[in-house]
């Protein structure tokens, strides 16, 4: 099963990219892009529910393990994984998903992918940042952090999508 190796290596690459690169860059104190969530977004449609939830949990836990924030990333990414099937159902009431395709620009176009991205990334970042601060004090400031960080995460996701989209066409 070569596909499962692909998923595992993507899992590891995204985890290491998050903890070694994104966590050590300075973005002016406001921006903390949690790009690792991309892994959960692009899993294939036929992924079983338990695999979705467990991989989200371990991805979050892995990030937590490196950044002294036990449980915060795990809680946020498990919640995102839980929302994913619902969001997918909402976004495509008209056409059925065939198996063997993944949510992405290649199969669904940029508009579909963008709306998918916006919904789930915003959910994820909102939970992440409010859990981190654990209060509604400084609400506007937290909101600003959420939006700026989510925009960076989405840009990264689009960038990765477009690069691989080009490659697969050739």
């Amino acid at each position: 099963m070569p596909k499962i190796y692909g998923h595992i290596s993507r899992f590891l690459i995204l985890l290491l990219f998050q903890v070694l690169v994104l966590n050590s860059l300075n973005w002016g104190g406001y921006i903390y892009p949690a790009f690792y969530i991309y892994f959960i977004l692009v899993l294939p449609f036929e992924t079983a529910g338990w695999a979705l939830l467990l991989s989200a949990f371990f991805m979050g836990l892995g990030v937590d393990y490196f950044s002294n924030s036990m449980g915060i990333n795990a809680a946020a990414s498990v919640f995102t994984a839980f929302l994913r099937p619902t969001v997918l159902r909402l976004l495509s009431s008209k056409r059925d998903y065939e198996s063997n395709i993944r949510p992405g620009v290649r199969d669904f176009g940029i508009a579909w992918f963008l709306s998918y991205l916006v919904i789930l990334v915003l959910f994820h970042h909102t939970i992440l940042f409010f859990l981190e601060y654990f209060s509604l004090k400084g609400f506007l400031h937290t909101l600003l952090r959420i939006i700026l960080s989510a925009v960076v995460t989405m840009l990264l996701a689009l960038l990765v999508q477009l690069i691989f989209y080009q490659n697969e066409k050739k």
Binding site: G49, M70, G71
Partner: peptide, 21 residues
């Protein structure tokens, strides 16, 4: 089971937060 697994993992994460953070 999808919902219950979600619940278990989420509760576990929240316990981790309150215990370790």
């Amino acid at each position: 089971y999808f919902f219950f697994l979600f619940l278990i993992l989420e509760v576990f994460s929240l316990v981790l937060i309150s215990k370790n953070n």
